[in-house]
Design a protein around this nucleic acid. Sequence first.
DNA 1: GAGGCTAGTGTCAGCCGCTGACACTTGACA
DNA 2: TGTCAAGTGTCAGCGGCTGACACTAGCCTC
Lengths: 229, 229
Amino acid sequence: MDTVGTVVGALPRPGLRERKKQRTRDALVRAALDLIATRGYDGTTVDDIAAAVDVSQRTFFRYFASKEEVALFVPRLAEQQIAEAVRARPRDEAPLEALRRAVLDSWDAINEAVGRLVPVELHMRVYRVIESTPALLAAHLRRSAELEEELAGIIAEREGLDVDTDPRPRILVAAFGGVIRVAERRWSAGDDLSTEALRELMRTCLDHVGPALATNWRTDASLNRHNET
Amino acid sequence: MDTVGTVVGALPRPGLRERKKQRTRDALVRAALDLIATRGYDGTTVDDIAAAVDVSQRTFFRYFASKEEVALFVPRLAEQQIAEAVRARPRDEAPLEALRRAVLDSWDAINEAVGRLVPVELHMRVYRVIESTPALLAAHLRRSAELEEELAGIIAEREGLDVDTDPRPRILVAAFGGVIRVAERRWSAGDDLSTEALRELMRTCLDHVGPALATNWRTDASLNRHNET
DNA sequence: GAGGCTAGTGTCAGCCGCTGACACTTGACA
DNA sequence: TGTCAAGTGTCAGCGGCTGACACTAGCCTC
């Protein structure tokens, strides 16, 4: 049971073997995103990816449960960062404000974390593929749903609520998640693929959350300035 | 170009051949849902479904593009009904109210349409499988996203807005869709699997949309009555 | 009612994603 | 240095899905 003792911790030194594994994993991600960005998702086989890193297909599947998982590796990174950022928000903030600031404030950290793995520009191109490939989009939405579940838990805990009896945390997070996806879609469909453009889109969309739910838009002049093409 | 003349219309008489096709399609759906409900999604192969209806696997794929498509056939029916119901709402209704009433009011129509195809109770059991099967849930979420896209278009048109420049229709629909999904999840996780229970859950959740986005829950006593276990 | 036309079907072969089993190599650690 | 386990490659195989081609059966005309 306890073969511990020599194992001091995970952080100090990754171990020679461990580093090799990490390199293989990174190489697989990079190769996969590269291929997917140029040949599309369906045009890229797992064999292609494995061959590009010179490992067997079997090995690929020991690192990633599915082809989708590599393709969505970067978004997954971002999700983790966001969840962490929400957890770190001061507890006296209103829930929606906490979510909003978590996303906008952790932007640089996300970009940096992503950039350590792959060129951000590459990720941008992959993102378009994700949005335009049904199977990938589906997987992405499911992962987003899981993130929402986690966020709902965090929010509920902050507010001292039971996430299973009070629907509000989940509802709030669902609305929030929906808005994020709208921003993602608009961004991936537009011309400016910079991360800054996406950040601004998210900011704008989040600013519309309240007003968009207002009872009557037609008599609400306060928002129409966003409408001048 | 015009071999018409004898073909009066599509409605009058479906044609002998056409009816056979319809029967095969229905039989495939029923067999699929039956198998999926009892053996689970992954435990059901396309060969099983095809064999149950005594057609070849190849024929199955001529009716449905994928195994997911049969499994999600009923939800797809419901989505179509909802989109139609939203289109039929009076244009002087506020957007959120139109969505809300479309869902709640078309409930019986949906149930009837579903019931014509499969026992509603069977659909209920399949729904649980959908929620608990990652691949199916992913596909379901993607379809929901497509419905949201359609609804956003309808809302934008009602309000005389351009769906590509004004983010509000999409945001509203995204929030709405998120709430619907919360209701679905709560329902499929609970004990009462009746359609009436789901309808009530949706009503309750929709009633929470506004308040859930309020700035501060902790000082908002008006909602806490939902909290007594 | 015989014939031709075409929509619909079955069969077959094959790709791709993914998995279990087993043998081999190579880093870790005594 | 030798032992052990972690990591990898190979192989065989299943299930989803598709293209090609031949066959059957409903439809329409004459």
